[in-house]
Amino acid sequence: MTRLFTENVNVGYGDKTIVKDLHVEIPDQQITTIIGSNGCGKSTLLKAMTRIHSHQSGSIILDGESITQQNTKELARKLAILPQNPEGASGLTVGELVSYGRFPYQKGFGRLTKRDMEVIEWALDVTGTTEFKYQAVDSLSGGQRQRVWIAMSLAQETDMIFLDEPTTYLDMAHQLEVLELLQKLNQEEGRTIVMVLHDLNQAARFADYIVAMKDGEIVKAGSPEDVIQRDVLRDVFSIDADIGRDPRTDKPMCVTYNLWKGEQQNEEDSNHTASYASACS
């Protein structure tokens, strides 16, 4: 049984509909990545599924019940979201920020219990941020801050974690650091991870399931092998890509690509193939 899915969901801003009649299922205890060009509705879908942004029509179902009918604190115990540009950490230490993840469990005056403290320490430990506990969040590097925000999400003790472009503005080493951490959480903790990514090869390498979107609709959803295909990438991104295999993971990867030029591209490809065959004969 799929815990989270949408049925004929429409989401927009004002009179403009961004996500259109969309049906998507999120596989449990797997890593799902959502890919697509800028403005296609990736982040809007993520926000709708986590109730940050209301949907106009259709249904978003979690555990057999519409998310609009679920108590806010109860929902926050099931899913956590890390937005693209998290704010609100100015002046806080790492430990203080991570403690905010315990809000759904607090009662009365919101004092931290022994259990809260244990979970906070665990979240710091699993993300490798314990050494920063008493440092100001503002003093950390981009990769370190991102791990701290993930630690706060983990402190919510949710089965599902949503992340909107978690590798944005990070260098290659820190991108890999964050993605490997999420993969570890999925494999060792059984967390369901849903994230928006721009890098196709990162999406293919770390995802079990990929959702490719264009103009608010799903073009293709399935395994990396199903989605990282030349025709799919041509439709979604208007690129003509050469697809190979990652020598380390054996996952599909985009080796190189050009802008798609329609029928002109077909003619150029045919001429290139004929020239290559003639040279080899």
Rank of each mutant, 00 (worst) to 15 (best):
G216W: 13
A221L: 06
R248D: 10
L197S: 00
L176H: 12
D164W: 05
L182F: 06
D231F: 05
M172V: 06
E217M: 12
E177K: 06
V232P: 01
G216C: 12
R205I: 02
M195K: 04
T256W: 10
P252E: 12
A212R: 08
Q187N: 14
A241P: 15
I210M: 11
R205N: 07
A173T: 15
L200T: 03
I210T: 04
D235H: 08
A212N: 07
E157D: 14
D226V: 06
G222I: 13
Y169D: 05
G244V: 05
S223V: 13
Q175H: 04
A203S: 01
I228Y: 03
D199Y: 00
T158V: 14
D226C: 12
I193Y: 01
Q229K: 14
Q187M: 10
E217A: 13
L233D: 02
Q183V: 02
V196W: 00
G216R: 14
R234L: 13
H174G: 10
D246M: 04
L181I: 07
E165Q: 00
Y209V: 11
A241E: 08
L185W: 11
H174A: 08
V227C: 05
Y257F: 15
T158R: 03
D242R: 14
V236M: 08
E177S: 15
V194G: 10
D240L: 06
D208I: 10
T158G: 09
K220C: 13
F162G: 04
I239Y: 04
V178P: 04
K184H: 09
Y209S: 15
Q187T: 05
D246Q: 07
M172G: 08
S238E: 12
T249P: 03
F237H: 01
A173F: 09
L179S: 02
D164M: 06
N201L: 01
Y169K: 03
I239T: 11
Q202M: 12
V236A: 03
T256K: 10
L185G: 05
L200P: 01
Y169H: 13
G222S: 14
V219M: 03
L200C: 02
L179W: 02
K220V: 12
M253R: 07
H198I: 00
S238N: 11
D199W: 00
D208M: 05
N201F: 01
Y209E: 15
K214D: 09
L197C: 01
L185V: 02
T192M: 08
N186M: 11
L179N: 03
I239C: 03
I243G: 10
P224E: 11
E217L: 07
T158Y: 02
D231Q: 14
Q202I: 02
D242K: 13
L185K: 11
T256Y: 04
F162S: 09
V227E: 03
D250N: 14
S223K: 14
E225H: 14
I161Q: 01
A212Q: 08
E157L: 07
D246I: 07
E217N: 14
N201Q: 09
V196N: 02
V255E: 09
I239S: 06
R191G: 07
D208G: 10
P224N: 13
L176T: 15
M195C: 13
I193F: 02
V211H: 03
L181V: 03
P224F: 04
E157C: 04
I243A: 07
D171W: 02
D226M: 09
R205C: 06
Q202A: 03
I228K: 09
E225I: 04
Q187K: 13
R234P: 06
